[in-house]
Every structure is written in structure tokens, then in C-alpha cells.
Simulated scan of single mutants.
Amino acid sequence: MADLYALELALTLDASTPEPVLALIRDHMEPYAEDGEADSDGDEWVPPPFKVLAERGPAYRVGGECTAVLTRTPVGWTLTARQEIHAENLPDAEHFLEALTPHLPTPEAPLGTLRFYEDPAPQPITADASGAVRLEW
């Protein structure tokens, strides 16, 4: 059995979102390099850090297409994404989303949804009063 989740984001960021936060988003959107990296001794493969928004193309189990788009708008930025994420990477997704929450114009608004691939109904993703995001799985 697979532990895969459909992560769907649809959020707006303030126009004043600093460049380091936008750079973080862009970095997470970059596809992985074809080859892994060797460790400092050069003899063991080290996987790259997990990128929340890097997958493109057909999703393996959750259906649909994996995509991510960051767009400049007259009032700020929009981030729209659909990704397939393994359960072990959900804490990475939480950490990524927590970096975005200080820049949301409406902090209480949902950031998107998370759905276990076998479940028919997604769960909303929201930040708590402190800006922390907890993905329920």
C-alpha cells in the first residue's frame, strides 16, 4: 500500500512578500537534477533535499497532473500547485507552508487541501493563530 497524498495549494501572498521567500518558492518549484550527489568522500549517493513543488507530469496514484505556478498579480502573488507527496515528506511540506504564512493577506484563509489517495474527500489546510501549519494524516 502506498502512503501518498494529493497536496493542492491555492493561495495569495502579499505584494510585500520579500525576495528570499519568493526565492524559496522558486527553489521548491525547480525540478530535481538528473543525477544525485556524492557525499564529501565521493563514494556514497546522497539524495537531494525534498522539494515540495518540484514534480511535473502525471501523478502516480492520486490522479491528475502534478504542477506548480507562481504568478505576479496586481495585488501580490498567487501560488497554485498540485503535488503528490509521500507521508514521510509531509513534515517538509508543513515547514515550507509555515514560511509562507506570515505573508498571507488573510491568515485564517485555507491554503489548500490534503487528501490521502484512497480518500474521496480532501482536508483543508489552514494555519493556526501562531502561523503553524499541521497537515493531518
Score class of each variant (00 low, 15 high):
H28N: 11
M29T: 02
M29N: 02
E30Y: 03
A33P: 12
A33Y: 03
E34Y: 13
E34A: 13
D35I: 06
D35W: 08
G36T: 13
D39N: 14
D41P: 04
D41C: 11
G42S: 05
E44K: 10
W45H: 01
V46P: 00
V46T: 12
P48Y: 03
P49M: 04
P49I: 14
L53S: 12
L53T: 03
A54F: 07
A54W: 08
E55V: 07
E55G: 08
R56H: 09
P58S: 12
P58C: 06
A59L: 09
A59K: 07
Y60S: 13
Y60K: 10
R61L: 14
G63C: 11
G64F: 08
E65R: 07
E65G: 02
A68D: 01
L70C: 00
L70F: 02
R72Q: 12
P74A: 05
P74M: 03
P74K: 04
V75S: 15
V75Q: 15
V75M: 12
V75W: 14
W77T: 00
T78I: 11
L79Q: 00
L79W: 01
L79Y: 04
Q83P: 03
Q83W: 09
E84V: 02
I85N: 06
H86Y: 09
A87Q: 13
A87N: 12
A87M: 08
A87T: 06
E88C: 09
L90D: 00
L90P: 01
L90V: 02
P91F: 06
D92R: 00
A93T: 01
E94G: 01
H95C: 05
L97G: 03
E98L: 09
A99W: 07
L100A: 01
L100Q: 07
